[in-house]
Design a protein around this nucleic acid. Structure first.
Lengths: 138, 138
DNA sequence: GATGATTAGGGTAATGCTAACTAACTTAAT
DNA sequence: ATTAAGTTAGTTAGCATTACCCTAATCATC
């Protein structure tokens, strides 16, 4: 029992470090009060290449005007910009700015920072045994 | 480099398991679209014992009517109830129901479930070395 | 009279919609 | 090949709902 408790504390610490890292990233971008929903949309845009307004409307199950409004807001926040399709003048691709991408990938980045910290505090052999231990959890 | 990447994947998996666990808890409670803010309030109520309306107003830096409304909403969601003070008829304590407590502690509970999974997949000795390894990260 | 909670009534912003429109493309008929 | 008639992509206008917060007034209790 004591071991589980101990492990709990250790992990709580790790998770705290990670969430501090992601908050850091949001405030680095000057977007401390971005919502979970907004981050979700940025992730969708990040994950699907060449997203158009209609496509995003379908993916997120929203109307086209809703998407227009959302993208306008993101554009004002300098997270996205429109890129006109060279083949079809009606179509605009929604592209993430560097800032938009940073936000979309903040969780990933935060985890990476934590991994860096780990790597700094242990040697190759220890890393290896850590991986072996955690790999088993399903 | 490869080791870090590997560790990244392993941790990503753990985090995914944990967030699945907390989503599970919210949907077990029939509150899949509860907001972060609401969870925050429930946590405040959970952490401070004997919270009154005025006290919660002070803690959260909101007006009393705002608190009344918030608590009414939580009461409708069956997350809290009022308990009249035996000493002072003007005072009501805000108490979490079992459901409210489950929500307030969902993150904690989710982590516990993951720890359980870990404990299931390794022996005492392995647990010990895992703790030793992760303890170093600051 | 002071204090704790509520009620009444209001404001703003987020988030979503439908309907109508413009611009750009496609098709089909001449 | 041209042009008229659709179709499609995105935008605009206008509206509804909900979240979230307030002040002022009220009621009950101390």
């Amino acid at each position: 029992m004591a071991k589980k408790e101990h492990l709990f504390i250790v992990f709580e610490n790790l998770i705290k470090i990670k969430s501090e890292c992601s908050c850091e990233i949001f405030s680095e971008c000057g977007l401390s009060d971005i919502t979970m929903k907004q981050i979700g949309y940025l992730k969708v845009i990040d994950e699907h290449g060449d997203v158009t307004f209609s496509k995003l409307a379908k993916i997120t199950n929203h109307s086209k005007p809703t998407i227009t409004e959302m993208i306008n807001k993101f554009a004002r926040m300098q997270c996205v910009y429109r890129e006109k399709s060279p083949d079809d003048g009606r179509i605009y691709y929604i592209r993430l700015t560097e800032k938009g991408q940073r936000i979309a990938r903040a969780e990933e980045k935060a985890l990476l920072r934590v991994i860096e910290k780990m790597a700094d505090s242990m040697d190759e052999k220890e890393m290896e045994s850590l991986i072996k231990l955690l790999e088993k959890v399903r």
